[in-house]
């Protein structure tokens, strides 16, 4: 079909606006990257928009990599992500399998009590005091156990488990399989894609978690990368920047930019490949709402 002049104008304006959206989404990251490799003195004086780097150095990255806190932060985060997500998936699968069994006595009551917690809770202070009384303050457990189940994700998983044919489960039972076997051998293998979605969601949540460690962790050797970054980027303690006597003041800004790049790179690098899983999850969540 032939397009009119008006249609062409419409398309052109639309394309320009969307190109602008790309530019706005990308620009801050580009700015941060170019700043991180720029010459420190030029960076402070140039007053430029950093579409290209001003000068060149990689010292900032050397500083970041030689910063022990960033290493330990990274390792801690890795531990919290792996252990935390493992516990999350196990607990959420248990909950989702159990409560997707329609013939379960007490199912409705349990569902009501669980759903209620999405809308009302004890809040920050009673929860904090509870964790304190449980002796979890300043321990790795605080990063893993208190958030073991995200109720919203549980509901998504339960909906997905409900679509596994009951006849399949019944016949497995007749063959003498118990529910653990059914969950791990039949239901989970049939729900691989939802499992992948849940894994990614939980993992990103752990990676980005900042409030839990801020509230419950006290010792530096337990700090995840987000807290280390807060100290470098926001609290701006030069000590945590690793900027000793040998580092000039000027490179401090470069170090901040390099820290942002290094902490954000892992997610940004894998994101394009797993984007569809995330979108799938967002859509299931939306349908649920």
């Amino acid at each position: 079909m032939k397009r009119s002049f008006g249609e062409h104008v419409f398309d052109a304006i639309n394309t320009i606006l969307l190109l602008l959206v790309i530019a706005i989404s990308l620009y801050p990251m580009l700015y941060v990257f170019n700043s991180s490799i720029s010459d420190p003195d030029q960076l402070l004086r140039s007053r430029s928009f950093m579409l290209l780097p001003e000068g060149f150095q990689l010292d900032a990255y050397k500083h970041v990599f030689s910063n022990k806190k960033i290493y330990s932060g990274y390792l801690n985060t890795l531990f919290y992500v792996v252990a935390g997500t493992g516990v999350n998936l196990l607990m959420t699968s248990f909950a989702a399998y159990g409560l997707s069994r329609m013939d379960l006595y007490g199912r409705k009551t349990m569902m009501k009590l669980i759903t209620f917690t999405m809308f009302f809770g004890g809040g920050m202070i009673p929860t904090f005091l509870l964790i304190q009384n449980l002796g979890m303050v300043d321990s790795r457990w605080a990063m893993i156990i208190p958030g073991a189940i995200n109720t919203f994700y549980f509901l998504i998983m339960k909906t997905s488990f409900e679509s596994v044919p009951v006849s399949l489960i019944e016949s497995a039972k007749l063959d003498g399989a118990n529910d653990f076997r059914i969950l791990f051998r039949i239901v989970l293998p049939l729900s691989k894609s939802i499992l992948a979605v849940m894994m990614l969601y939980y993992a990103v949540d752990h990676w980005n978690d900042y409030v839990t460690p801020m509230l419950y962790l006290r010792s530096q050797e337990l700090y995840p990368i987000q807290i280390v970054m807060r100290d470098i980027l926001i609290s701006s303690s030069t000590e945590s920047m690793g900027a000793g006597a040998d580092t000039g003041f000027a490179i401090g800004e470069n170090i901040k930019y390099a820290t942002i790049i290094i902490s954000t790179l892992p997610i940004m690098a894998v994101y394009p490949f797993i984007q569809r899983f995330f979108v799938q999850g967002a859509l299931i969540g939306a349908v649920k709402q």
Partner: peptide, 27 residues
């Protein structure tokens, strides 16, 4: 590209705001 910023942690976003507000050469 427009989904990307969603995956940046809030610490980094605020950190960027902070560096962008630097008196000398901040964006």
């Amino acid at each position: 590209f427009s989904y990307m910023p969603h995956f940046i942690s809030v610490v980094v976003v605020v950190g960027m705001l902070k560096t962008f507000s630097a008196l000398d050469g901040g964006l």
